[in-house]
Design a protein around this nucleic acid. Structure first.
Length: 705
DNA sequence: TTTAGGG
DNA sequence: CCCTAAA
């Protein structure tokens, strides 16, 4: 432990701290904790999104069954209100292709309400949504926006729900076809009607939902139950809208097998699975990802990383937010905002309370979430605009699975897809009075957002992040409370800021194609992906740093959907996407190695790339290996992004030092260091060299690179 | 799981 | 980057 204390990120002189290796067990702790938590975040996020999707679909569908009753009640209220309000302003606007879905086919408010109630009473209905998935099992990736949007909802639900489920239950083995059949029998058939032929295509799903969402649901209610008796219990198990309770309750009813759960799982899954199993599930998922079961794995990783940016601290925050999400729409009640520590109770309460407007006036301090204080002040003099975001539209999902795939695999696929999208990066879109606000540099006022202004017409959307961004710089929280860019946010970077902006160049184009114009907006915002640092300032960063995950997304994330495990297996052998280390990363690496030595790659990784989950210690080690090599060859022979000679020099020095000394003795270290440093002294650190070389600790502190 | 190296 | 033997 003590060894860990050594702190100092840059130092001009070369100093070798003497760092006894801490027992592995000890060392380990520090890294994983954060990750786990973060992971949880991610999961929660997913859950949240799932919830949201659910809601969306429900609302859109007009009635679908409730998710969990609890959830529903909360969510519904919110949605209801939201829709009413938003419908006007934003509705026709269609935030983005995927996002607008809701408004597109949302029945009129009144009807909706009715439906909601109805659905609440009859949880069974849920089946429908699920069903679609089943029937439509197959993929769709290229519909018109419109179509897609419909489908999307369906997919999302499925994904989330089942995906979660998958996490917990693992391995459904029933065949999709079977499942589909079941559903059909149950009553979905109707909906399918003429379209049923198309079963293979997602489009079908679309048509179904579009044509008769309401009808469908209504009809199915009674029928649905038949196929899984299990479902009911489950719902009942979840009596009250408090999250805490839910959790417990949820556990009760979850014994179904995949087949049965298909429909009902949704709720359960989304409420419970994520939450409860998040830790466990996370690992599992991660593993899966790692093993490249999914094409999207890389993205996911990004996501993970982004999530972990702020470590524990943020975790709580995120978690709370997640709760909100889970409730369906990312709704962030004012109360929650005010409190840095939202507790579950609080969140649930607030949620249920805050359904009035799509956007409720709330607190938004320039600095975002953290500002309980500012909130208060605001009322007096601060020209802050307060509002809460009640919900977000979620980006669409593309699912592609072979017909013969098992239900379980489909579920997994969906899950992965959701995760991918979430993880790949979501960004916040903002709409004011039906117009997208693209200029992040505008003041709220300029954008027409003021306390007295159009808060009611202010909408936020979660959109796939198609442009590369530096995860480490972004807040991991989801919804951005504050629309404008907060440069302040930039200040809080993880300890070892290493930005990875890697993003397949093709991706941007790709995404553009896929996402359509909607991307344009953001291109404006994001300058050149080339320079991480510059970008930093350009990326819209939510002040509140709520749940937004803006991470490098390979457009592929959307386009590329997790394929069935089988397929992925074949791809298993596929290489990970190449992610050249940026200079910044190299620098971080060098720095870390200087301090930690070359025998502790795990620690080095953590130190230099803690938030870059796509960098493994093996990667780091390999990179060092190549760096050493690179440094030892003639500049002309070097390839790839040129690494500053200065860094290479440091590499050699550090390498030499650690390979000889092994970090055993302080005394020796100085010597070597000194000598070596002198060689490169010209580069920059001459002044410090002599002093530094000898005493590690003191130097470390003072040095700055 | 990490480390250490070869491929 | 991947793959693995060792630890």
């Amino acid at each position: 432990m003590s060894s860990k204390k050594r702190v100092s990120h840059g130092f001009s002189g070369y100093q070798f701290p003497v760092i006894p290796k801490a027992p592995r067990s000890v060392r380990r702790r520090h890294s994983h904790k954060n990750i786990d938590n973060d992971q949880i975040c991610a999961f929660e996020l997913l859950a949240a999104v799932a919830g949201e999707l659910l809601q969306e679909s429900e609302s859109s569908a007009c009635s679908n069954a409730a998710v969990g009753k609890d959830e529903l009640s909360d969510c519904r209220a919110v949605i209801k209100c939201e829709q009413l309000k938003e419908e006007k302003a934003v509705k026709s606007e269609c935030f983005d292709q995927g996002s607008c879905v809701e408004s597109a086919y949302i029945p009129e408010p009144a009807a909706r309400e009715q439906n909601l109630k109805y659905s609440l009473d009859k949880p069974n209905q849920i089946e429908n949504n699920i069903f679609h998935m089943n029937t439509c099992t197959v993929l769709s990736s290229d519909f018109s926006k419109k179509d897609w949007s419909y489908t999307k909802l369906e997919n999302c639900k499925e994904v989330i729900t089942d995906g979660k489920f998958h996490t917990e239950v693992e391995g459904g083995s029933s065949n999709l076809e079977d499942a589909c059949d079941k559903r059909i029998e149950t009553g979905t058939q109707k909906q399918l009607g003429d379209d049923s032929k198309q079963t293979e295509d997602l489009t079908v799903a679309n048509s179904c939902s579009v044509k008769g969402p309401i009808e469908k649901h209504v009809n199915n209610n009674s029928t649905v139950n038949s196929d899984s008796s299990v479902q009911l219990p489950w719902y009942r198990a979840v009596p009250r809208p408090s999250f805490g309770k839910q959790r417990n309750n949820v556990n009760l009813g979850i014994r179904d097998d995949d087949e049965n759960s298909f429909g009902s799982y949704r709720h359960r899954t989304n409420i419970r699975a994520f939450r409860q199993t998040s830790h466990i599930g996370y690992r599992r998922m991660r593993k899966m990802l790692t093993s490249r079961h999914w094409k999207v794995a890389p993205q996911l990783k990004d996501w993970e990383r982004s999530c972990s940016n702020y470590g524990m601290k943020s975790f709580h925050r995120n978690r709370k937010r997640v709760c909100a999400l889970e409730r369906c729409r990312l709704e962030i009640p004012s109360k929650r905002r005010k409190l840095c520590h939202y507790d579950q109770q609080a969140s649930s309460k607030s949620i249920s309370n805050s359904p009035e407007k799509g956007i409720k006036r709330d607190i938004i301090s320039p600095r975002g979430a953290g500002a309980s204080a500012s909130v208060r002040n605001h009322q007096k003099k601060d020209p802050n605009v307060k509002f809460s975001i009640k919900s977000f539209k979620v980006p669409e999902l593309f699912i592609e699975v072979p017909e013969n795939e098992t239900v379980g695999s489909l579920k997994r696929t969906v899950m992965e897809t959701v995760k991918t999208i979430l993880g790949s990066g979501l960004r916040v879109g903002m709409v004011v009075q039906g117009k997208k606000v693209r200029d992040d540099n505008k003041t709220l006022k300029q954008a027409g957002i003021s306390q007295n202004g159009n808060l009611d017409t202010l909408g936020f959307t979660l959109e796939p992040s198609s442009y590369p961004a530096s995860p480490s710089l972004h807040s991991k929280d989801l919804p951005a409370l504050s629309p404008h860019v907060a440069d302040h946010e930039l200040t809080r970077r993880p300890p070892s800021p290493i930005m990875e902006l890697e993003l397949p160049s093709a991706s941007s184009d790709h995404s553009k194609t896929r996402l359509g114009e909607h991307d344009e907006d953001y291109h404006e915002l994001s300058p050149s992906p080339t320079n991480p640092i510059d970008r930093r300032s350009d990326v819209p960063i939510p002040d509140s740093r709520p749940l937004v995950i803006v991470s490098p997304l390979n457009a592929e994330a959307h386009a590329v959907v997790p394929v069935s495990p089988k397929i992925s297996r074949s791809e298993l052998s596929q290489r990970r996407t190449r992610r050249p280390f940026s200079v910044a990363e190299v620098e971080a690496l060098v720095e870390a190695v200087e301090e930690l030595g070359t025998g502790r790659w795990r620690d080095v990784k953590i130190r230099a790339f803690e938030y870059a989950d796509h960098r493994t210690y093996v990667d780091v080690k390999d990179k060092w290996k190549t760096l050493v090599h690179t440094a030892s060859i003639a500049p002309q022979q070097r390839r790839g992004e040129p690494v500053p000679q200065e860094l290479l020099d440091r590499v050699l020095i550090a390498h030499g030092y650690w390979s000889k000394q092994h970090g055993k003795h302080h005394a020796e270290a100085p010597k070597i260091v000194e000598a070596q440093v002198q060689n490169i002294g010209a580069l920059e650190n001459n002044n410090n060299n002599n002093n530094n070389s000898v005493s590690m600790p003191s130097k470390m502190a003072g040095s700055a690179t």
